[in-house]
């Protein structure tokens, strides 16, 4: 057990290696995306994840060992989910501006986001394990992880699905809003947040502060609504 490889594999047991790698990959991903001019189809977290995967593969570190070390980070997801209640409370007054449309569109839209995906995946032969991973695809990550765990799905598949959903929702809103002649920033924002969670919300803040506020409102409400309802309805 001498040399660099021996030292590195001993370091693999130290959680600080996993935490440091994650932080370094996060910053590298952000820097790369900034260099590319922040394209809407490429979320920084995806680039960061590619950098992180390459780092794990090239070091004498297994994914299992990495994930165990990274528990030091993921344990914070619980309090971070609670923290989402603060912006939800701060943005609640926007609901009054569009009370009826939001109260109707939110449950219908959030349910349809789940139903379309489940019906298509089921029709093409997906297993219950896969369906449980896809179901919360439009929900913001910290809440969605809890839902998929409760349903018995795969968190990595969920995370990939979340990213793809966020990107597709963002592109779809850009393309369809013009076709349907929808220009109300509140509607665009709400649609981005409801369907595209955090990825859509970032895009909404680029449109305007109003769109961003309605996006974070749509994102939080979709998360809460889906988390409360889906675990009870899913077996069907």
């Amino acid at each position: 057990m001498t040399g660099l490889a021996g030292v590195l594999s001993a370091l693999g047991d130290d959680p600080m290696l996993a935490v440091g790698l994650t932080l370094a990959a996060f910053l590298a991903g952000q820097a790369l995306v900034n260099l590319m001019g922040k394209p809407a189809w490429l979320p920084a977290v995806f680039v960061s994840a590619v950098v992180l995967a390459l780092a794990i593969v090239s070091l004498p570190l297994t994914y299992a060992a990495y994930r165990e070390g990274a528990l030091w980070l993921t344990v914070l997801l619980g309090p971070a989910t609670v923290a989402l209640g603060v912006p939800l409370f701060q943005q609640m007054h926007h609901i009054r501006q569009m009370l009826m449309p939001i109260l109707v569109a939110l449950p219908v839209g959030a349910m349809l986001a789940v139903i379309y995906a489940l019906v298509i995946a089921w029709a093409l032969g997906a297993t219950p394990h896969i369906l449980a991973s896809l179901a919360p695809k439009s929900v913001t990550a910290p809440i969605a992880i809890g839902i998929t765990e409760a349903l018995g799905g795969s968190v990595p598949l969920l995370m990939g699905s979340l990213l793809l959903t966020g990107v597709v929702a963002t592109i779809a809103v850009d393309l369809l809003a013009g076709q349907l002649k929808v220009s109300d920033e509140r509607i665009l924002g709400f649609t981005l947040g409801l369907n595209g969670h955090a990825v859509g919300t970032v895009r909404a803040f680029e449109i305007s502060a109003t769109a961003g506020a309605f996006a974070s409102l749509g994102m939080s409400l979709t998360g809460v609504f889906t988390a409360l309802l889906l675990p009870f309805l899913f077996p069907f």
């Binding site: 996060f26 977290v45 995967a53 994914y63 971070a80 995946a121 297993t127 695809k137 992880i145 990595p156």
Partner: peptide, 29 residues
């Protein structure tokens, strides 16, 4: 975003568990 990265990176290591289902997954999404 930093907190969800350990979950995101997992898809690169566990993708082969879903071989044969990618058409269903990608169509649904």
């Amino acid at each position: 975003v930093l907190l969800i990265m350990p979950g995101v990176v997992g898809i690169f290591f566990q993708a082969d568990a879903f071989d044969g289902y990618w058409l269903a997954i990608l169509s649904a999404l």
